[in-house]
């Protein structure tokens, strides 16, 4: 997202890239993925397969504000280092 963007006049139907354009998508989640850092081998499968790009490439922290809980990261993890925990 560009910080100093030039806005076009309001008469034009323009949309600007922002996080959360689809709303608070973290609230869609039924199960939350949790990564066991001890088992993790940093293969980055979870990072690349996540359809929403909510797993940080370096820290492998999951952005729970927007993670939709699809479970692909857990399913694809070759070390079963990610578990899906039911949300309260």
């Amino acid at each position: 997202m560009s910080e100093q963007r030039n806005e076009f006049p309001a008469k034009y139907p323009v949309s600007y890239p922002v996080t959360g354009a689809g709303g608070d998508t973290g609230s869609w989640r039924m199960f939350r993925p949790e990564i066991d850092k001890d088992k993790c081998i940093k293969c980055l499968f979870c990072w690349i397969y996540c359809p929403d790009g909510v797993i940080d490439r370096d820290s492998l922290e999951i952005n729970y504000s927007y993670c939709k809980g699809c479970g692909i990261c857990a399913k694809e993890c070759p070390r079963n280092a990610i578990s899906m925990i039911r949300e309260e």
Partner: peptide
Amino acid sequence: NGWIADPQNPSAYACVTGADLYPGFREE
């Protein structure tokens, strides 16, 4: 002087909108 598809200033044009904004564009 209108909207331009510009990679240096990315924005999407004519996306889905609801009854909150659509009437305004038509009225304009």
